[in-house]
Nucleic acid binder design. Structure first.
Lengths: 202, 202
DNA sequence: ATAATCAAACTGACTGATCAGTCATTTTGC
DNA sequence: GCAAAATGACTGATCAGTCAGTTTGATTAT
């Protein structure tokens, strides 16, 4: 019993090690160019061992994404819960996402590049990932709807408003990543938030 | 001479056939999953023949994108040139891009999925494609700057404003493509344009 | 304390499949 | 009759996933 527990611990730690390595390598080389052995090497284990923890390359990839997606979702929820007004909610939403992606550039890089592409290829990948990807927007939409109902902001289509906020945020993030085009500064973020607030003002 | 001219004509037509086929197949299966033979088959030629017209799979891919990117750029320019006010420019910009992508879903699918991913992988692909991808936004930014200088709209950062318009447009397009999430209607587009105008009003 | 045992964990050489690009040969149409 | 165009079988490289063999370390026997 004590034994099996210790076993479980080290086994989970190893799983994490693999996921961490996978994020690093996938982020650096992209999904297609990453070879499973690269991940194993980065994790300091043999290729065969990796397959004891995950059934396929794709599952490693999705698991790496999922973990981060869950954390980001939790942080988004926290930020929105604390926001007193819809303006605060909007600002926090943008800020929390920008800072999360800044602190987890690996995740960002993977998410932005391949996952979205895979999504659009229509391949059914992970129901939970799809859900998490939408939950952030849905949460913001709820806040907007409540505020609109209270007459605090423009009443038209809170859902689409949330989607717009989300799109602008994604734009800010992507532009920070991309090697070309205008890099986005902190001031730009404030400006974008301000513009979005204006658009939604009563 | 007459001969070489006719040769040139058919040769260019064949090139176009290949590009057309490539768009279809890349759009359906994605870059990685597409096999060069698929493209050749779709074009009704042998694989070897394809390599007489293009040096590599990647170059076929980029050429297919480039052609559409040029057309889209031209249409965007036309639309913006005719717009009397900055509001019209904004609306037309969104509309022309949405309708272009709607009429060329293949292009859209390729562009949205793989090209942007490749960009973010930092691989140097095609200077002209990079330029074209930015030109649309730059043009809109110019219009905004001129309008702002004339005091017709809010004077703050026309460039970032154009980026935001571009991001929202992209969001509308992507949501129309993706199999999940809220599908975007024509009314949504009008709403988004309206919101963006409000954000930029004096 | 030390050795023997054994199952679970680990490993990396191997396999089968895939595919970009080539080139010796065939076809076309002038 | 011939040069340009077209072809598709072939090659070499790559890689996901497997599995026969090795290591580890906990447990039991001496």
């Amino acid at each position: 019993m004590g034994i099996s527990l210790r076993r479980k611990e080290t086994s989970e730690r190893r799983r994490d090690t693999i996921l961490h390595a996978a994020r690093t390598v996938f982020a650096r080389k992209g999904y297609a160019a990453t070879v499973v052995e690269d991940i194993a090497e980065e994790a300091g284990i043999g290729k065969g061992t990796l397959y004891l923890y995950f059934p396929s390359k794709e599952q490693v990839y999705l698991a790496a994404l999922l973990e981060d997606a869950r954390t980001l979702d939790a942080e988004s929820r926290g930020a929105l819960a604390e926001a007193p007004s819809w303006r605060d909610a909007l600002r926090r939403y943008v800020e929390v996402r920008l800072s999360y992606f800044e602190a987890h550039e690996d995740f960002l890089r993977i998410y932005m590049t391949e996952f979205r592409g895979m999504c659009m290829q229509g391949r059914p990948l992970s129901a939970e990932l799809y859900r998490l990807a939408q939950d952030g927007e849905a949460l913001l939409a709820q806040r907007f709807a409540a505020a609109a109902a209270r007459g605090e902001m423009r009443a038209a289509d809170p859902e689409l408003a949330a989607l717009m906020v989300s799109d602008v945020t994604r734009g800010l993030i992507e532009r920070r990543l991309r090697g070309w085009g205008r890099p986005v500064s902190a001031g730009d973020t404030a400006f974008a938030v301000d513009m979005l607030c204006r658009a939604l003002e009563r």
